[in-house]
């Protein structure tokens, strides 16, 4: 019979965090930027079908980086939670903060209790209704840590260097098109070719779009914005 080794809790947590971070760092980064019209979300993603950015509810979008199957399952769970709540109470009662809390709970629980932590980082973004408070950007880490961010939010392996660039170049109140161009620029490899419309997944939460604020920006429109 083998003797169980003592491993300190600090070591267990550190190993898990390293494991999750490594998984996340393999993927590409993703950015959300507040703009005059609402919020823009941009990711490098060559696939037309495997989305990293999705609609959750009227004014709420979800974005994930890391393992696709994991953040997609989390996205579907979020849609379910939001639709259930909106159906049983009212559409106004579905908020980004309660969704972010639910995600944090789940990620935190899995991080400490399961064999393997989720290798994902999530963003829950909510555009404000006109004259009704501010936009909200909740950045949730693999271990359940939640950060309430302002202006912009960067997810993924290269987050730090991209955030550095955004700190210098982002300013409040830029237009949606400017935000998309800025996002595409900082996501691109500084030494290589800039990213093209085919390599980007872009979506926006637009304040004045009606009840469902989420819209994908793609195809000819995206090309035009990028070259504009």
């Amino acid at each position: 019979m083998s003797m169980p080794f003592y491993v300190s809790p600090e070591q267990v947590m550190k190993d898990r965090a390293d494991y999750a971070r490594k998984g996340i760092a393999r993927g590409r980064s993703l950015i959300a930027l507040e703009c005059a019209e609402g919020i823009v979300l941009i990711a490098e993603n060559p696939s037309r079908r495997l989305f990293k950015i999705s609609e959750i509810y009227d004014r709420i979008a979800f974005a994930g980086v890391g393992l696709y199957n994991e953040f997609n399952a989390l996205k579907i769970a979020g849609v379910r939670l939001a639709d259930l709540k909106g159906y049983q109470y009212s559409r106004e009662d579905v908020t980004a903060s309660s969704l972010a809390y639910a995600y944090a709970q789940t990620l935190g629980h899995v991080f400490t209790h399961e064999m393997k932590p989720y290798e994902v980082e999530l963003l829950v973004a909510q555009v404000s209704a006109e004259g009704d408070g501010d936009n909200e950007l909740f950045h949730i880490m693999y271990d359940g840590t939640v950060m309430d961010e302002e202006g912009f939010s960067v997810l993924g392996g290269q987050a730090e260097s991209i955030a550095e660039q955004l700190k210098e170049q982002y300013r409040e109140g830029i237009s949606e098109a400017e935000a998309i161009r800025l996002g595409a620029k900082v996501l691109s490899n500084p030494d290589g070719e800039p990213l093209t419309a085919d390599q980007l997944e872009v979506a926006a939460l637009e304040r004045d779009r009606g009840p469902r604020a989420f819209r994908r920006v793609k195809g000819a429109e995206l090309e035009q914005i990028l070259t504009g």
Binding site: A77, G78, R80, L81, D83, A102, T106, H109
Partner: peptide, 22 residues
């Protein structure tokens, strides 16, 4: 886990894209 918890399902009981089943 405290409320609100995310709804997850096993492979046999997943309601798929149907809200009514959910």
């Amino acid at each position: 886990m405290n409320e609100p918890s995310l709804p997850f399902f096993g492979p046999g009981s997943d309601p798929g894209p149907s809200f009514a089943d959910l």
